[in-house]
Design a protein around this nucleic acid. Structure first.
Lengths: 293, 293
DNA sequence: TAAAAATGTTCATAGTTTGTACAAGTTTTT
DNA sequence: AAAAACTTGTACAAACTATGAACATTTTTA
């Protein structure tokens, strides 16, 4: 079904994964994993599946799990059941939600969290599912009620993840949406990734008035405010430089910001792309540049 | 819940919890807790659950509880009913949220869930806390941002509870708010209690258009629709008997419904009081009367 | 107040985990 | 055939960890 053919030499894996070849061999010897195919002459040939596994393991290690445990966890996750990829899980999640079967949805998500790192679940399971349901709604394939139930359910799921992920020691940020926005899921995902990247994140939910945002950011001594804008009108209806005074640095993301970065600048804020994974990095660069780190 | 597998080394715990490794070992020797798993070579491997426990214990110590007592309290809280009543926990929760310390809030809630049944936590810990924060906001004691953060956080917490509480076998209900409502927490709590009472509940989140509600209720063969109304205008702006055709039985609750039950009847729906604990019972009576059970 | 208990830290010694390095031989590429 | 890359096995060092005991402080108890 998938790409299990060994094609990558150890040097290629070394390059792509930033894992020394010596280490790869030691892992194989010590933990029995990965155990790639061999060429007729005995050279290791890693498959795409092996790389995927290594990505997981590396991710877990970076989360503080001991290497031996990370490998063990991965091997166990295999014996539990077939390692269904995020794409499959995402489709199953969509299916469950469209049938209003939140119990099934819960099962799918819990399996996803067991098999994959949080980032993968959010970006490759939940996000695509939301996007497909949103598209389906625009096309009339999905009813408003189905869309409501699904996004409400997933929002809850993401937020409980945010709640469970304790605060950090890094610089403080405030996350919300622009006033008037209906959809908060983008900002929720952003908050999640930023907290995961080590920032201390205060997530205020959608629709905080700008004046209150400013007061709150000052009281918590936040280094930056991150806002999401999905509707162009949220940007257009604000006066020139309206965001500038809110905090030392104000970042706006979201679909509306992506399609019109100029108007973000007009408001005195910055657009840093729309991938929450990159945002943490861009933000740290910007904070350092501005001497706010 | 999730991972009880030991994966974190003592150094990792030392870093995350700011507890010296020597102290962790002393606690284990003196109090017998935590007693993490061991690697084949004898190294301690702490689980996520251990970390959670340590967070509680650290919190108590910082409040002045003697370490030995804090550990004892934690071990007891796993079995018996601890001495801290819901009122105290509710105040602590409020305190934590007003300080934007969601980590502390999480600890309080997790203790509350361990000590008390879900109904008690929702009605005597979370609800009073929300009410006090709402009142404080009206009086200007609490800023809009604080109110936002708190209600967003608690909404997430309630929803994850709803998500985790699997569906049931009882009659199907649909829960949402009237169109135009801002606050969904009332309907969320209602959904929670109804699901807990054995109904199969589809929670659609706030603001579902009436036409979609009707279509969804028909498709899922829901026996009743339960809606929440906080703002009087949501009731007043609807035409005569607007709710009647949505489902065999339509129930409206919430502050606006309580203060003007007549207008609920005018819309062709029923008002059944505002206590979610009673609603399940009233609903079952009404369904039986109408031959819908 | 003095003794006792509780608590957190430090030390010394031995064992574990983990990543890297080297040697000698084999396979693949140029 | 020569060079480059790979293999296995072994070795090694740095960083960590375990245990048990001693120690200095603070808090509680007598």
């Amino acid at each position: 079904m998938r790409n299990d053919l060994g094609v990558y030499t150890i040097a290629e894996v070394e390059e792509r994964m930033s894992l020394s070849s010596a280490l790869l061999r030691q892992w194989e010897r010590r933990y029995g994993f990965p155990r790639p195919e061999r060429s007729p002459g005995g050279h290791r040939l890693y498959s795409e599946t092996d790389l995927e596994a290594l990505r997981h393991i590396k991710q877990w290690i970076s989360e503080g799990v001991a290497p031996a445990q990370a490998v063990k966890r991965y091997l166990e996750s295999l014996t539990q059941e077939g390692p269904r990829p995020p794409e499959t899980l995402s489709l199953e999640l969509e299916e469950a939600l469209l049938q209003a079967d939140t119990e099934a949805a819960e099962r799918v998500l819990s399996e996803a969290y067991r098999l994959h790192p949080v980032e993968t679940v959010v970006m490759d399971v939940i996000s695509p599912c939301l996007r497909r349901i949103g598209d389906g709604w625009h096309l009339g394939r999905v009813t408003t009620a189905q869309e409501h139930l699904s996004s409400t359910y997933l929002r809850g799921s993401l937020q409980s993840l945010l709640n469970l992920m304790g605060g950090s020691l890094g610089p403080t940020l405030v996350v919300s949406t622009l006033p008037g926005e209906q959809h908060e899921i983008g900002s929720l995902i952003t908050a999640l990734f930023l907290r995961r990247a080590g920032y201390t994140v205060h997530y205020l939910g959608p629709n905080t008035p700008l004046a209150d945002l400013k007061a709150f950011a000052e009281r918590t001594r936040a280094r930056a405010i991150v806002l999401s804008a999905m509707q162009p009108i949220s940007l257009e209806s604000l006066p020139h430089l309206a965001l500038r005074p809110l905090a030392p640095l104000v970042v706006v993301g979201g679909r509306a910001a992506a399609s019109d970065p100029r108007s973000v600048e007009r408001l005195g804020a910055r657009y840093m792309g729309n991938d929450p994974r990159d945002l943490a990095e861009s933000l740290s660069v910007a904070l350092k540049e501005a001497g706010l780190w």
